[in-house]
């Protein structure tokens, strides 16, 4: 087990290096620091940006280094005093540098993680519970009109853009009925009023796809031999569904769910920016709208780190849930 984990962790390293190289290539070679500087200066209504202004911007934001090799330094400085080392490799040490407005990205990420989790964790748990219950209900009523109605409703729900859920939910619950505030956030337990609606909306937006997927998993389980055996032994249909089928069906559910858990840290772009939650999702949206490449790059790196972590967790969850799977 330990052996396997160490190997998996080592396997994650080349993937992260790949992500690192890919983002570096995109952000520094396709779009050079000169282009970034020109874009930012151009936005301040300077039609023709002078070379001197570009140089100044690059120095102010630490982009005035050579890309891979610095001939003006000595020894190891040849390699460390370069854009690649400063901006890209440093991320492995969780050093993300400063955003365009001068704030430290790592500090920002740490403080914004909390609000993101306040929304994402309840939404995840409630969503999982709702989707599983709905799926079990549809399977219980399988091949009847109730099941067909459920599938039709789920298909309709999944055909509605999440934007409509957010806008509609905000309009109905916050503006029309005034049950909860329109947007905003407050840390701690007092902030439940702000959390309620975003969580509800996220759950609702996920019901369609989620319940349909779980339903198909359970339906596949219910056609298997052990179910027939259980039935022929005289077990009640309820016991078969809620004990045997549920436990076996949870294996594929578990593996897809566990992979998502680390990504909960990233929050949700749309929900957070609509409801004014100061989380990581909103941070990304702000960075995208302000064209802050340093923040986007850092979030790409963190996102892939969490994804790889999710892959490893999936493997562990698989072996815990399914004794047939051995890690080796």
């Amino acid at each position: 087990m330990i052996n396997y984990l160490v190997r998996r962790l080592l396997y994650a390293v080349p993937i992260l290096i790949g992500v690192n190289l890919l983002t570096f290539w995109l952000f520094f070679m396709v779009n050079t620091p000169d282009d970034i500087a020109r874009m930012h200066l151009g936005r301040q209504h300077q039609k023709h940006v002078s070379m001197a202004a570009i140089q100044q911007w690059k120095i102010a934001h630490g982009y005035d280094l050579p890309i891979f090799y610095n001939p003006s330094r000595n020894g190891i400085g040849h390699l460390t005093d370069t854009l690649f080392a400063e901006k890209s490799l440093a991320m492995f040490a969780m050093d993300f540098g400063a955003a365009d407005d001068g704030s430290d990205i790592a500090t920002e990420i740490r403080t914004r993680m909390g609000p993101s989790l306040m929304i994402a964790v309840p939404a995840f748990l409630l969503g999982l519970w709702t989707n599983l219950s709905l799926a079990l209900m549809m399977v219980w009523f399988r091949t009847s009109w109730q099941d067909r109605l459920g599938v039709a409703a789920a298909t309709m729900l999944m055909s509605i853009s999440s934007l409509f859920f957010i806008i509609g939910g905000q309009y109905l619950f916050a503006r029309e009925w005034c049950w909860v505030p329109v947007s905003g956030f407050e840390p701690g337990l007092d902030g439940w009023r702000f959390v309620l609606l975003p969580v509800l909306v996220s759950v609702l937006a996920g019901i369609g796809r989620g319940s349909r997927w779980y339903r198909s998993v359970f339906l596949e389980e219910i056609g298997k031999d052990y179910v027939r055996t259980a039935r022929s032994k005289g077990l009640s249909e309820a016991r078969i569904l809620f004990v045997h089928v549920l436990r076996n069906g949870l294996i594929p559910v578990l593996t897809t769910t566990v992979a998502v858990i680390p990504l909960l840290f990233m929050g949700s772009l749309l929900t957070e920016s609509f409801f004014g939650i100061p989380g990581l999702g909103a941070y990304v949206v702000e960075a995208l709208q302000g064209e802050d490449f340093a923040v986007v790059r850092s979030m790409v790196f963190i996102g892939s780190l969490l994804y790889v972590l999710g892959l490893i967790l999936t493997d562990i969850a698989y072996s815990v849930a399914d004794p047939r799977v051995r890690l080796s």
């Binding site: 983002t23 995109l26 952000f27 990304v284 790409v300 996102g303 994804y307």
Partner: peptide, 15 residues
């Protein structure tokens, strides 16, 4: 795959 979809698209669109 390990880069979150929307971020990868966003990064390339920005470029």
């Amino acid at each position: 795959n390990s880069i979150p979809d929307i971020l990868l698209i966003a990064a390339v669109v920005l470029l």
